[in-house]
Design a protein around this nucleic acid. Structure first.
Lengths: 225, 225
DNA sequence: GTGCGCCGTTAGGAACCCGTCAAGATCGGT
DNA sequence: ACCGATCTTGACGGGTTCCTAACGGCGCAC
């Protein structure tokens, strides 16, 4: 859940943003003045800040500068002033965007999505599955064992990948055949035996007594962490 | 020197931006239509794109989508349309900012600086990758070996860059082809073999026994630090 | 014990893919 | 129009992967 801090002295704007952002799955915190905004920015660890420049206690630009001095969290500035000078000052102080009031909620939300999207480039990583004897890195398509990579052929990797993605659950032979060899290979189970043996030889400490690549007789195979 | 690509069909806007950006130390390339914009975006490796949506040959949104399909370069959209719908569409298609015409040059430049600043922060994660035999500087787009720069052609750099950015993970042939040659080159793997060999000859101490530019037969390539 | 079905294992040849070199085509700058 | 650099294309030797076949082991029913 993405945390957003809304800083504005007008209660109806705080309320409107809280409702609209909350409805779209954001977790909203609010602040009505510069001092509490800085406190919330530091301790609430928001992933995005919407900052109105017209605050009662401090100059909004100073609030922005104070945030930037210790954080690179995306900040979208709101302001009633449409002057080019104000925009330039805010943007050069470190704002990511500048929206003038009155603003369209749709546009603000789109700009917010754009800012969040930019900030979360490196957030989506595929899982790495670790067992006591080897490690499967799904993103890298790579298996590590004793610190060095185990070389797998595409077919071997295709089988292992499917088993690992559905780890703990049974994968039937026909599912494996469809996935790795393509549709039309529903019945020919000989491939599976050959390649599973290969995987066990490469991955299991004692291939004859597999601990992770388990056979369920007459059903299929299962990957046990 | 920051490279900026300006895409607009109005000559006076191209000219105004070229002058103003050039005076501030940017290196400006221009394009007047969608097709040449895509070509320049792909081969000129700009660090920022200013894209007018009103192009003669293609829908600007489609141009944006095409750029986004293979690059995360910051894009500032220009448009004569101030509709909220248009802004939302552009921003959700991957635009970093949306500026309506007529625009103030100061504001545009400030928004451009903000976009470049963000991109450089994001790229600062680790722009230099060092191996035991050579060094790849992603920010400078430069490769060093034994203290001197290794000259790479644009295509060679394109492949190396993608492999290094995803170092450790397998990059499939079709991914490389899409990134470097563009969509539509999904199957022609001959290029890859030729250019990989070229890279190995220039970078690997023993090209026949590569230690960093690794082949995974029938799958793709990977860069190992 | 013996036959049968199912699974695991190994090995070798065929098919396919990769690396390499070199020549022709294309592009960009003068 | 020329020239150099870059990109594309073709051909071939060597290597990897895949498929197939054969055999051994295990459990079960009779």
């Amino acid at each position: 859940m993405t945390r957003v801090l809304v800083v504005d002295d007008e209660p109806q704007i705080r309320r409107a943003l809280q409702i609209n952002l909350g409805a779209r799955g954001f977790q909203v915190a609010t602040a009505a003045d510069g001092a509490s905004a800085l406190h919330a920015a530091k301790h609430g660890h928001p992933e995005l800040i919407i900052l109105d420049l017209g605050l009662p206690d401090m100059d909004g630009i100073d609030v922005l500068a104070a945030i930037r001095s210790h954080s690179s969290v995306p900040v979208i500035v709101l302001s009633a002033r449409a002057d080019s000078t104000d925009k330039v000052e805010a943007l050069d102080t470190g704002a990511d965007d500048y929206v003038t009031k009155p603003f369209g909620m749709d546009e603000l939300l789109a700009r917010l999505r754009a800012a969040v999207r930019r900030a979360s480039v490196a957030a989506d990583s595929e899982p790495v599955v670790v067992t006591e004897s080897f490690t499967v890195d799904l993103a890298a398509k790579q298996v590590l064992r004793d610190g060095s990579v185990v070389h797998l052929t595409p077919t071997e990797w295709g089988m292992l990948e499917m088993l690992v993605r559905r780890r703990g659950t049974l994968v039937t032979r026909s599912e494996l055949l469809r996935e790795v060899w393509g549709p039309g290979y529903r019945t020919e189970t000989h491939y599976l035996r050959v390649y599973l043996a290969q995987l066990r030889r490469k991955l299991e400490p004692i291939p004859a007594k597999p601990r992770h690549l388990i056979t369920d007789a007459r059903m299929g195979y299962r990957f046990q962490v």
